[in-house]
Amino acid sequence: MHAIAGLAFPLKRLLQELSLFLIGQDAGVERFRVTFELEDGPPQTVEVGLLSVHRDADTLLELTRAHLERVCLAGPVMALTLFAPRLSDYAPTRRELLEGPARQAQAWAALHQRLVARLGESALRPLVEHREYRPEKAVLSGLGPRARDASAGPPRPGWLVPAPQRCDGDVVQLLAGPERIESGWWDGDDIRRDYYLAQWVDGRHAWIWCEPGRQGWYLHGWFG
């Protein structure tokens, strides 16, 4: 395996030339590929896919390097080539006109792009909400339960533990509750729990439950 750190300078030159070309064409790119000519072996190609149209050289270099961090080169590199098969219309964003939510949305888009480049698209998964009262089944992929609008009832934690954990000795005080959740009788995985907002031994706020009429507390989530 060969590191790509030493390729930063030639990559920067190539991407600067691409950026100047794109500016001259009033265009941008959403995808391009970098081919590494290796000393001993066939060429190795890396596809760089972007989530939006870009043409700024520094941005293209940052995202390309993030993609290459996940690549293992099979040998010393003798030459580099860069090919953009398709140009796209480019509409620059007027940053000075953005404020409030618009600016936050732009910052999130940039962060999303960097994370996808560094970790791969499969590493990021959106929340998929379900109209389901059982907390562990309310979200297919995400952090916390969103069975219903938080304004319609008691608050929900932002983080669920992978599975409820017994926590009898860690609860200091009950702050709110109970909230009865009884659901799932139709599919054989029914639950009957009384949920409480509780203060944890270290001061954190926890979401805990017990079965009605029985002793024993279970931790199910944390409030931020």
Score class of each variant (00 low, 15 high):
Asp189Val: 10
Ala27Ile: 11
Leu115Lys: 05
Ile181Ser: 06
Ile181Tyr: 03
Pro76Lys: 06
Pro126Arg: 06
Trp186Ile: 10
Leu111Pro: 05
Ala176Phe: 05
Leu175Phe: 03
Leu197Trp: 00
Ile181Met: 07
Glu17Lys: 13
Leu174Met: 10
Ser151Asp: 11
Ser183Val: 11
Glu37Cys: 10
His54Asn: 04
His130Lys: 15
Gly75Thr: 03
Pro92Cys: 04
Gly6Leu: 09
Ser19Lys: 04
Leu160Gly: 03
Ala117Val: 04
Asp190Gly: 11
Arg55Trp: 04
Leu50Gly: 07
Glu129Phe: 11
Ser141Cys: 15
Ala74Phe: 06
Pro42Asp: 12
Arg114Gln: 13
Val53Arg: 02
Ala105Leu: 11
Gly41Val: 02
Ser52Glu: 15
Gln215Arg: 12
Ala57Cys: 10
Ser183Lys: 02
His112Arg: 15
Ala176Met: 14
Ala176Val: 07
His67Ala: 12
Leu115Pro: 04
Val171Ser: 02
Thr59Val: 14
Asp168Lys: 10
Ala107Ile: 12
Leu82Cys: 05
Phe21Cys: 00
Pro43Arg: 05
Gly153Asn: 09
Leu143His: 12
Glu39Met: 13
Trp200Phe: 14
Leu82Tyr: 03
Leu127Phe: 12
Glu136Ala: 05
Ser19Val: 01
Ile181Phe: 07
Glu179Asp: 15
Gln113Cys: 04
Ala105Ile: 05
Trp159Met: 09
Asp187Arg: 06
Gly224Thr: 07
Ala123Tyr: 10
Leu119Ala: 06
Glu211Trp: 00
Ser141Asp: 09
Glu39Pro: 03
Ala3Asp: 13
Gly188Arg: 02
Pro85Lys: 05
Ala138Lys: 01
Ala5Val: 14
Met1Thr: 06
Leu111Glu: 13
Glu136Leu: 08
Val201Lys: 08
Leu22Met: 01
Thr45Ser: 15
Pro101Ile: 08
Gly221Gln: 02
Ala8Pro: 04
Asp190Arg: 10
Leu22Ala: 01
Ala147Ser: 11
Thr35Trp: 06
Leu63His: 04
Val53Thr: 14
Pro155Gln: 11
Leu18Ile: 09
Gly216Pro: 10
Asp194Gly: 05
Pro85Met: 05
Val201Phe: 06
Trp185Pro: 02
Ile191Phe: 03
Arg31Gly: 05
Leu11Phe: 07
Gly100Leu: 02
Lys137Ala: 13
Arg125Thr: 14
Ala3Gln: 12
Asp58Met: 06
Met1Gln: 04
Arg131His: 10
Arg193Ile: 06
Cys210Lys: 15
Tyr133Lys: 13
Leu98Thr: 04
Gln106Phe: 10
Arg156Gln: 12
Leu15Ala: 02
His54Ser: 08
His220Ile: 09
Gly75Ser: 10
Glu47Trp: 13
Glu182Trp: 11
Cys167Gln: 06
Ala66Ser: 09
Cys72Gln: 13
Gly24Arg: 12
Ser151Ala: 15
Ala107Glu: 15
Cys167Ser: 08
His220Gln: 14
Pro145Gly: 11
Arg125Asp: 00
Tyr196Gln: 00
Ala27Arg: 09
Ala8Cys: 09
Tyr196Val: 01
Leu97Gln: 14
Leu124Met: 14
Gly100Cys: 00
Leu87Asn: 00
Ala105His: 09
Gly153Pro: 05
Gly144Phe: 06
Arg114Tyr: 08
Leu82Ile: 05
His54Pro: 01
Gly221Trp: 00
Tyr195Leu: 07
Arg70Leu: 15
Arg33Phe: 11
Glu179Gln: 14
